[in-house]
Design a protein around this nucleic acid. Structure first.
Length: 482
RNA sequence: GGGGUCGUUGUCUAGCUUGGUUAGGAUGCCAGCCUUGGGCGCUGGAGGUCGCUGGUUCGAAUCCGGCCGACCCCA
C-alpha cells in the first residue's frame, strides 16, 4: 500500500519551502521540466490556470480600448541596440540566433527578451498624425531571457508566457494616466481574483525597467518571507520615441515626439498562487481562477452504484447550469479516498462527497479545500450553498494572505535590526532612504536585500536613511526577492 | 561570480566504497476478480542502452575525464 506520505507532497511547506514548491508544481500536474535548462512544459491543468488569468485581463484590456496583435520572435541586433540603456540591460540574457541551416546569418537575431524595440520600429511607420493616437496594443506571447542560475518553475524560467502591452500617446499626462490605469487593472486581477495582496508603488532608479522614465509595480510577499514582483507598468516618456522616431503632427501643425508606456504580467503569477495559498496537502486555488471550482466525488457500494452515479450526474448538471465549473469524478478505478487526496493536491477549492446516506437524508456534504471544513446543505439549496462557499473560500484566502503579508512587514529601529530581520523571518523591511543609489547598492551587498517598492503611500516615512543617517527622501520597502 | 550535492523503468529508490548477479524492491502502469465515507485487497503481466559521451579494463551502473540536466549554500 502506498502511504499518504509517499503519494502526496512529502515535505512540509514551512520546513523545506523550496522542495515543497517543486513537488506541488509537479504532482499537481501544473508543469514539468523540459530538456533544456530553465525551460518548462506547461501541462493542461497549469495552462488552464493561465487561461483564466488571460481571460480576465483580456476582457479588461479590451474594455479599456486595447487591441491584441502579434509580433515575430526574432529581433535584429541593430534594433535591439537602438536604445542604449535598454540594450545594456538586456544583453547579458539574450539568446542569439546566428545560423540559418548551415549558413551564418549576417546580422545576428535576438530571441525577443521583450518587444519594445521591434514594436516601436513598426509603430513609427503607423503613426504620423495626432489622429493616429492613442495607439494601444497588447501581445499575448512569450519572452526569452537566459537564466544562468537559480531557475524555478513559473518564478524564474528562461522562457515565460506573458502579455506585454505597448501604448503611444500624444501627451505625457495621457501616458501617465495609462500607466496608473494598467497598474489598477493588475491590482484588481492580483488581489480580487488571485487573492494575493500586493503593495503598490515605484521601483527605484536602479530597479526600474531599463529604458523607462519610471516603473510602477505590485510587490507580493511569499510564505517564506521573500518578495515577488507580480506586475509592472512603465512610463517610457520619450526615451523610445526619440531613437525610434515615433513622431506625429499635432493640431498645432508642429511635429512632436510621442509619449509611451509598456506593461506586463507573466505566468509568475501562477507561482505566487502556489507559494501564497498552498499547504502541506498541495495546491489551493482561488475559486475565481480555478479551472475546476467544484469536484463531485460519488461514494457507493456496488448495490448503490447506479443510484449514486445518477444523482451525482443530476447534481453536476444542476451546478453547471448555475455557471459553476464542476467536475464529476465518476472513475471506477479509484476509491473515494484516493480521489479526496488527489483533488486536494490539485487545489480544487470545493468538493462534494455524495453517498447513499446523503441521498437518503436529502443533503449534500461540501468540503472546503482551504479549511477542510465540512458543511452540510439541504439538497434543494446546493447551488446557493456552493456559491456561498466559493465566495467564502475566495475571501478567506485573501484574508489569510493579507495577514501573511502584514506579519512580514517589520519596521526596524536601526540598521542592526534591519539586518537581523532580513536574516531571520525576512519579509518587507520598510526604512528611510536618502535616495542615494550608493546606499541602495551597499545595502544590497551587505544584506542581499534591495528596494522592492517605494510605496505610493509614503505615510510614516522615517526621518533618516537607514544606512547613512542622512535625511531621508523616501520610505522604501526593502526585501530579498525571487 | 564562488563553493557544494545529485542523476538507476512513469515516480521513489537498493546496488557503487572493494569492477564480474538475470540490476533488487516499492509504487505506478496493463489484464482479471474484488472494492469505493480519507491514498482497499488478491493473482498474473509488461516496463531498464543505469543522464550523454570519451577513456581505463578481458569485463564498467560501479573507477577517471568532458558535457547535459536538477537542486542547495555563499557573494
Amino acid at each position: 500500500m502506498l502511504s499518504a506520505k509517499e503519494a502526496g507532497i512529502t515535505v512540509k511547506k514551512n520546513e523545506d519551502f523550496s522542495d515543497w514548491y517543486t513537488q506541488v508544481v509537479l504532482k499537481a500536474g501544473l508543469a514539468d521540466y523540459a530538456p533544456v535548462k530553465g525551460f518548462i512544459v506547461l501541462r493542461p491543468y497549469g495552462y488552464a490556470i493561465w487561461e483564466s488569468i488571460r481571460d480576465i485581463l483580456d476582457k479588461r484590456f479590451k474594455e479599456t480600448g486595447h487591441q491584441n496583435g502579434f509580433l515575430p520572435v526574432l529581433i535584429p541586433e541593430s534594433l535591439l541596440a537602438r536604445e542604449e540603456d535598454h540594450f545594456a540591460g538586456f544583453t547579458p540574457e539574450v539568446f542569439w540566433v546566428t545560423k540559418a541551416g548551415n549558413n551564418d546569418i549576417g546580422e545576428r537575431l535576438a530571441l525577443r527578451p521583450t518587444s519594445e524595440t521591434l514594436a516601436y520600429s513598426i509603430f513609427s511607420k503607423w503613426i504620423t498624425s495626432y489622429r493616429d493616437l492613442p495607439l494601444k496594443i497588447n501581445f499575448w506571447n512569450t519572452a526569452l531571457r537566459a537564466e544562468i542560475k537559480a531557475t524555478k518553475p513559473f518564478v524564474r524560467t528562461s522562457e515565460f508566457l506573458w502579455q506585454e502591452g505597448h501604448t503611444v500617446h500624444a501627451t505625457k499626462e495621457e501616458a501617465e494616466e495609462e500607466v496608473r490605469m494598467i497598474l489598477d487593472i493588475y491590482r484588481e486581477l492580483i488581489e480580487d481574483y488571485l487573492a494575493v495582496p500586493a503593495i503598490r508603488g515605484y521601483k527605484s532608479e536602479k530597479e526600474k525597467f531599463v529604458g523607462a522614465e519610471y516603473t510602477t509595480t505590485l510587490e507580493g510577499m511569499m510564505a517564506d518571507g521573500r518578495a515577488l514582483q507580480m506586475g509592472t507598468s512603465h512610463h517610457l516618456g520619450q526615451n523610445f520615441s526619440k531613437p525610434f522616431d515615433i513622431k506625429y503632427l499635432g493640431r498645432d501643425t508642429a511635429e512632436h515626439f510621442a509619449w509611451q508606456t509598456s506593461w506586463g504580467v507573466s505566468w509568475r503569477l501562477i507561482g505566487a498562487i502556489i507559494m501564497v495559498h498552498g499547504d502541506d496537502k498541495g495546491l489551493i486555488l482561488p475559486p475565481k481562477v480555478a479551472p475546476i471550482q467544484l469536484v463531485i466525488v460519488p461514494i457507493h457500494k456496488d448495490k448503490d452504484a447506479e443510484l449514486v452515479k445518477g444523482k451525482a450526474a443530476e447534481l453536476a448538471a444542476e451546478l453547471k447550469s448555475a455557471e459553476i465549473r464542476v467536475h464529476l469524478d465518476d472513475r471506477d478505478e479509484y476509491t473515494s479516498g484516493w480521489k479526496f487526496n488527489e483533488w486536494e493536491m490539485k487545489g480544487v477549492p470545493l468538493r462534494i462527497n455524495l453517498g447513499p446516506r446523503d441521498i437518503e437524508k436529502g443533503q449534500v456534504e461540501f468540503v472546503r479545500r482551504d479549511s477542510r471544513e465540512k458543511v452540510l446543505s439541504e439538497r434543494g439549496k446546493a447551488i446557493e450553498t456552493a456559491n456561498l462557499l466559493l465566495g467564502k473560500v475566495q475571501s478567506d484566502l485573501f484574508v489569510r494572505a493579507k495577514s501573511l503579508l502584514d506579519s512580514h512587514v517589520t519596521r526596524p529601529a536601526n540598521y542592526e535590526e534591519f539586518k537581523k530581520t532580513l536574516d531571520g523571518k525576512g519579509g518587507f523591511v520598510p526604512a528611510g532612504w536618502c535616495g542615494n543609489p550608493e546606499c541602495e547598492v551597499r545595502i544590497k551587498e551587505e544584506t542581499g536585500a534591495d528596494i522592492r517598492v517605494i510605496p505610493f503611500d509614503q505615510a510614516g516615512m522615517p526621518e533618516n536613511c537607514i544606512l547613512c543617517n542622512a535625511p531621508s527622501k523616501k520610505l522604501a520597502y526593502f526585501g530579498r526577492a525571487y
